[in-house]
């Protein structure tokens, strides 16, 4: 079980949070011009990285805000947490 450092509230138990998948996937600006392949890529295709993974979490039972987590998916070690819109830390 993780202890996650919410950028707004500090360290809290994992049960207060939920994970919402890979971060830094920008919604395409002109969806109507995309091909089926490009739209499918945006909607469904994921890096599913074994190693350093950037992902979105929400602090459901706390401030209810979204933020990003940088985590190693092999050891489950959390390497950094940062606010939405901030640059992702280098791995």
């Amino acid at each position: 079980m993780f202890v996650i450092k919410c950028p707004y509230c500090g360290e809290r138990d994992q049960t207060e949070f939920s994970c919402h998948g890979e971060a830094h996937i920008a919604r395409p600006e002109n969806p109507e011009t995309l091909t089926d392949e490009e739209w499918g890529e945006y909607l469904f295709i994921r890096s599913n990285k074994k190693g350093i993974h950037y992902e979105r979490w929400t602090h459901d039972h706390g401030c209810r805000r979204w933020f990003n987590v940088m985590r190693d998916t092999v050891s489950d070690e959390i390497l950094a947490t940062y606010k939405m819109g901030e640059e992702k830390p280098k791995s």
Binding site: M1, F2, C19, H20, K49, H53, E55, V74, D76
Partner: peptide
């Protein structure tokens, strides 16, 4: 299943 990606072959305690 847990909601986060992992290759650790360990589920979360909760």
């Amino acid at each position: 299943s847990d909601s986060y990606n992992s290759y650790s072959q360990r589920g979360s305690f909760d």
